[in-house]
Amino acid sequence: MLRDVHADERPRERLIRQGVQSLSNQELIAILLRTGTKKESVLTIANRVLKEFEKIHELKHATFEEIVSIRGIGEAKAAQLLAAIELGRRLAQKQVDSRFTIRSPQDAATFLIPEMSSLQQEHFVVLFLNVKNQVLHKQTIFIGSLNSSIVHPREIYREAVKRSAASIICAHNHRATRS
């Protein structure tokens, strides 16, 4: 149990003393979960979360139902984890969104790949740019099936006119299918 761990080695105390960067993924999740159960420490439950999703990056796609199905996690803990994941996603996107200027195809890729690379379905996304090629708005126009998306130009142009966009960049992800 965590109470059996020396106070200086507990995640919260280490965070305060050494900084958040010094903690492992297991310890960060343990801090978010706050408590364990009568039979298991919070670190054991945090480890179970990491085993369930194998890679920490996969947590980004976790559903409420998947998290609640992990032994030791109820609705409140699942809600805390999902809220933290969404907050992190929003913070990461906000850093990229703040009037990002696109001067090349690579700039567009830099802007879009972090979010689009992990999507599970085909997404057709449009960037709406001002006269300085700064991103005014990003919108997913259509979400398709596993390997296709059908978009009508009127959907794109309607949004471009609404945003007074000087130019647009259209992008979509390719989902590889395995047989």
Results as ranks from 00 to 15, higher is better:
I70G: 01
A165Q: 09
S149R: 14
I56Q: 06
L87P: 03
I168W: 02
T177S: 09
E52T: 06
L82H: 06
I85Y: 04
R163Y: 04
I143Q: 15
I169H: 01
H137F: 11
Q106A: 05
K162F: 12
A160P: 07
V125S: 00
V161W: 09
Q139F: 05
L33W: 01
S148N: 12
K55M: 07
V42H: 04
V96K: 10
L87W: 04
D97K: 05
T35H: 11
D8N: 11
K162R: 07
G36N: 01
A46G: 03
A166C: 12
S117E: 15
L146S: 09
L146I: 13
G74S: 08
L87E: 12
L28E: 06
S179H: 13
E65N: 04
I113Q: 13
R3T: 13
E58K: 08
R103G: 14
S179R: 12
Q18M: 11
I169F: 01
K162G: 03
Q139V: 03
A171P: 08
G144Q: 05
V126F: 02
G19E: 15
E66W: 01
R12F: 08
E159V: 02
L91P: 06
N133C: 08
D107E: 12
S69T: 07
D97G: 05
H57L: 04
L23P: 04
A83T: 01
K138R: 14
L32D: 08
L127Y: 03
R90N: 11
K138Y: 11
K77V: 11
A109M: 15
A166E: 12
Q106K: 09
Q106Y: 06
T63Q: 08
F100K: 00
Q139E: 07
Q121N: 11
A76S: 07
N25A: 03
K55P: 00
Q80G: 11
V135W: 05
V42N: 06
R10A: 09
I156Y: 06
L2Q: 10
I102W: 01
E86V: 00
E65Q: 02
T101Q: 15
R175E: 03
T110Y: 10
S149D: 00
E115A: 06
T63S: 12
R89M: 10
R175I: 09
V96S: 07
I143G: 02
N133V: 11
L43R: 00
S167G: 02
R178K: 12
E66F: 02
R12L: 12
E52R: 05
